[in-house]
Amino acid sequence: MHIAILTLTFSLPGCGSLKEKRQRMGGLHERFGRSPSVAVCESGERDRHDASEWTFVIVGLSKREIESQCREIEEKIERIVDARVVNVEREFF
Rank of each mutant, 00 (worst) to 15 (best):
M1Q: 05
H2I: 09
H2F: 15
I3A: 08
A4Q: 02
A4V: 01
L6Q: 00
L6V: 06
L6T: 02
T9S: 14
T9I: 14
F10K: 00
F10V: 00
F10C: 00
S11A: 04
S11M: 07
L12N: 01
L12W: 00
L12F: 03
L12Y: 04
P13Q: 04
G14C: 05
G16N: 11
S17W: 05
K19T: 08
E20G: 02
K21F: 08
K21V: 03
R22M: 07
R22K: 13
Q23W: 14
Q23P: 09
Q23G: 10
M25R: 01
M25S: 01
G26S: 08
L28Y: 00
H29Q: 12
E30L: 13
E30P: 09
R31W: 06
R31T: 09
G33S: 02
G33K: 01
G33R: 02
G33Q: 00
R34M: 04
R34I: 05
R34Y: 04
S35K: 03
P36Y: 04
P36G: 01
S37A: 12
S37Y: 11
V38C: 04
V38W: 01
V38Q: 02
A39G: 08
A39Q: 05
A39K: 01
C41H: 11
C41E: 11
C41N: 14
C41D: 13
E42G: 12
E42V: 09
E42R: 07
E42D: 05
G44C: 05
E45Y: 15
R46I: 13
D47H: 13
R48M: 13
H49D: 10
H49T: 10
E53P: 05
W54G: 01
V57Q: 04
V57I: 14
I58M: 01
I58S: 01
V59P: 02
V59Y: 13
V59Q: 03
G60H: 07
L61T: 15
L61Y: 15
L61I: 11
K63F: 10
K63L: 15
R64V: 13
I66L: 06
E67S: 05
S68Q: 12
S68D: 13
Q69T: 12
Q69Y: 10
R71A: 15
E72N: 12
E74P: 04
E74T: 07
E75R: 09
E75N: 13
E75A: 11
K76A: 14
V81N: 04
D82Y: 07
A83C: 07
A83N: 03
R84V: 09
V85M: 05
V86K: 08
N87T: 11
V88L: 08
V88W: 07
V88R: 11
E89F: 11
E89C: 15
R90N: 03
E91D: 14
E91S: 10
E91R: 12
F92Y: 11
F93Q: 06
F93K: 04
